[in-house]
């Protein structure tokens, strides 16, 4: 009798633990989605940014254009953010 009760409690507890860990897993997945994409965007912008600064030093008129070229990889992190938001909410 005692065994059965303790088994039931253990099962209930493990179900709760699984639920909780699922939420945790989701949060971790969201974190991975946003952090890896943010890293990738930053890396891409690093290369473009340094070239852009060089180009602007040569010719100030192209500032507007290179600013845009620099933000193009931001799409990557935005996709990451979208995936993260969809995972959590």
């Amino acid at each position: 009798m005692v065994d059965v009760v303790s088994n039931v409690t253990a099962v209930e507890m493990s179900v709760e633990a699984i639920k909780a860990s699922q939420i945790g897993m989701k949060a971790i997945a969201a974190a991975i989605a946003i952090s890896t994409t943010a890293f990738a965007a930053a890396w891409a912008e690093m290369a473009i940014g340094s070239a852009a600064v060089g180009a602007t030093a040569e010719n100030k008129d192209i500032f507007g254009l290179v600013l845009l070229l620099t933000v193009i990889p931001e799409t990557i992190v935005i996709f990451g953010l979208v995936v993260a938001l969809l995972l959590i909410f």
Binding site: T75, I78, F79, V82, L85
Partner: peptide
């Protein structure tokens, strides 16, 4: 999907 930035940046 790129237009989702309208939401993402805002959020």
């Amino acid at each position: 999907l790129s237009y989702s930035r309208l939401v993402a940046v805002g959020l």
